[in-house]
Nucleic acid binder design. Sequence first.
DNA 1: CGCTCCACCTGAACGC
DNA 2: TGCGTTCAGGTGGAGC
Length: 273
Amino acid sequence: MPELPEVETTIRGLKSIVGSTIVNIKINTPKLRFFIPKNIQRIKNHTKIINIKRIGKFILINLSEQNTIVLHLGMSGRLRLYSLEKFHRQKHDHFILKTNNNKFLVFNDARRFGFVDFDKTYLIHNRKYILNLGIDALDKKLTANMLFSKISNTMVPIKQILLNQRIISGIGNIYASEILFDAKISPLQQGKDISLFKCRKIVISTRIILLKAIKKGGSSLRDYVSVDGELGNFQNNFKVYNREGEKILGKNIKKIVQYGRSTYYCPELQIIN
DNA sequence: CGCTCCACCTGAACGC
DNA sequence: TGCGTTCAGGTGGAGC
């Protein structure tokens, strides 16, 4: 589920535990997508949470003593923050951190495609899943030239390119369709046929769509809620996603399947060269 | 190496 | 009501 805007909304909601200390760790489900490292139990009582940030769709919780916890939400993962009185265990609560200000940070994930990782910070930064990441979709250093140079030799369609986290990280299946609609580019257009000018449009549309979505608290289709349990709002601003058969600007919205994933677009407004 | 497709899971929605 | 099928916001790895 969660793409960059949902992950960003999540980490913004976790500010209230930055600076607090961890007083307990509970693992209810040892194996998610991967096993939760056993040495995470070595986190000492009163280890401080120094910082919480995001790279692409990965959440990094930086701790004192050069340790870092990594969380990835997969398709159905969510992080919730409960006060002591509101906390009660729910189905699929896999991993729980309790802090000294009586908050419970709960990782819930029905499908268990997400994961929890833990290690020394410098080792986390050398994980393959981090090293392989392309530039973050909201990084100001992302330029049309960068995108152009990475895609100008491939026959892979641009929709699939946008989902490739090694090229740009953070975009997922919803926002790929929305970005391409905003940029007026066909999802079927192959990388080699995307001009530098179109790359510029993609870079601009990426910022516009993702920032708007963050402003709306992300998108809630099925699973996603903020750490306080609030629904996001951006699903009401989808132009094409999930709107097969409807019209946009008087033109039909169509659904196709690319690489096994749904793509929504408007063939009349998103023309192939 | 690059590309395509599948597996990994649960649960909700839909058709009969 | 129930049962089978399909689909879902992601991604690592097998196979070519």
